[in-house]
Write a protein that binds this DNA or RNA. Structure first.
Length: 203
DNA sequence: ACGCCTTTGAAGCAA
DNA sequence: TTGCTTCAAAGGCGT
């Protein structure tokens, strides 16, 4: 059985290379050159090339949306790499690969929730709102995008719903044991308990 | 330094 | 099944 372990973050390109199942063109590699330590059958592979190491995007989002023009230098994924350091809570996770093979990945990186349709839309359109120069703050931009989202045709919205569905499927394949509950309480502090938004308590 | 704000949707959980 | 909560992204702002 092929076993693959990696320290840090393993991108889907890695999976593609090892498994031959995933399309390398679908995602960019998320890995830090100096931290990547992939072994297959006891052999450690060479560090990834500079180009792939320089690309850092969400491992679950298709290149369609997360091309470099959509990933600004301030992207948290890039930050996660530049600030990456081995964590004491590093642990191994094993994920299934093709034909029953399994991948064991040592990672300290939190597996995030897959983006929903609106989040994908926001990620794609945020820079357009910024270019318009009317809004600067994210909260204001999100309000604008929320209104535009509702103004979208069903056909246009379905594009993002389909994309979100693909991402959820991919997420399930990559992290079969993952649950959204895993990230509950990971934030430093809970959001304020005061009722707001669409979930307003009825007195 | 870190949480809040603000949006929609998915998922989890309690009742 | 229903209703509520939390988290996903983003970055300026306030403490």
């Amino acid at each position: 059985m092929e076993r693959l372990s990696c320290r840090g973050v393993m991108g889907l390109s890695d999976l593609h290379h090892r498994c031959g199942k995933l399309q390398a063109s679908d995602w960019c590699l998320l890995s830090q050159k100096q931290d990547l330590n992939v072994t297959i059958g006891g052999q450690t592979n060479a560090p990834q090339d500079e180009a792939s190491a320089a690309l850092s995007v969400h491992p679950l989002v298709p290149l369609l949306l997360y091309s470099d023009r959509h990933v600004p230098p301030s992207s948290p994924y890039i930050q996660s790499i530049t600030s990456y350091a081995p964590q004491p809570d590093m642990h191994f996770k094993t994920y299934p690969c093709h034909h029953g093979n399994r991948i064991t990945c040592r990672t300290s990186v939190q597996v995030k929730k897959p983006l929903n349709a609106f989040m994908l839309y926001m990620k794609e359109m945020r820079h357009k709102v910024l270019q318009e120069g009317r809004e600067r703050e994210s909260a204001a931009i999100n309000r604008v995008l929320g209104r535009r989202w509702h103004a979208l045709s069903h056909c246009e919205q379905s594009k993002y719903y389909d994309l979100a569905q693909k991402e959820r499927r991919l997420h399930m394949q990559l992290y079969p044991g993952w649950s959204a509950r895993d990230n509950y309480g990971k934030r430093k502090k809970r959001r304020s308990q005061k009722p707001k938004g669409k979930y307003v308590r009825l007195a």
